[in-house]
Amino acid sequence: MAYVPEPLPDTNRVPRGGGLLRMLTSRAVLAPIGAVILFLVFWEFIVWANSWPDYVMASPSDLPAAYSQYWNLFLIMGWQTLWRTVVGLVLAVVVGVLIGMAMGFSRTTRDALYPLLVGFNAIPKATLVPIVALLFVGAHDFNTVLIAFMISFFPIAVSVSIGLSTLEPEYRDILRSLGASQTTIFWKIALPKTLPEFFGALKVAVTLAFIGTNLMEIVSPHGRGLGALFDSGKTNSDYPLMFAVLIALAVLGILLYYVVVALEKIFAGWAERTPTQ
């Protein structure tokens, strides 16, 4: 009466590291590049068809000139924007996870904090820029990081709290019946189980953090970051430069997004299911 397990369906995963050439010609790389090219062609076409001058709407063909003229500024400003965004994001992760844990584990904390958090999140962060700038006069780096943090911690806190509070009681019971402490349950089950939700929120937070950084850079007259470059384009009526800054911001956003995707693959890759036929 020995049990013979049924054979599993063939779950050949996509081969990893199957040569650089194969990776570069894979659908995952070609499809997004194709979409970007299509988008640029469409943009160029719209500008050309309406015969808009570049002070109404710059076209992609105006951009290379702007980049080659100001390339050193783009590198310096781009780096300033990037590091301040990343620091703000790291801060948002730390604080967001802590708030999320407090709300996920305790109903009282959850009930108490939700209205405060939602209320805070409903305030347009642009209105906080002058407040922060006056509060910490001259601390430009700090202020920028602060705005990036304030705009991006909310989705992280909410997702962590939902992930923790929706943990099926059986998971807890399995460990609790063995005499495990709350800390053990958190590290062995609650934390890893929340990771997919956490990374989902982090993808949202990445783009939000860029918005926060640039809010400060554009409004505050310190001349740092891509936001300041955008502002100088505006004052000098250099419209191609303004558009070039926007595209540079988009590229940085995409870059950081894929960093998050890579981290997600490493830490929460198990949540991804191989499609079955």
Binding site: E170, Y171, D173, I174, L178, I189, W270, A271
Partner: peptide, 16 residues
Amino acid sequence: RSTVGMAFQNPVLLEW
């Protein structure tokens, strides 16, 4: 107490 083993209708295996 650790002298108990439990199994439920939901197998609650850790997916990771």
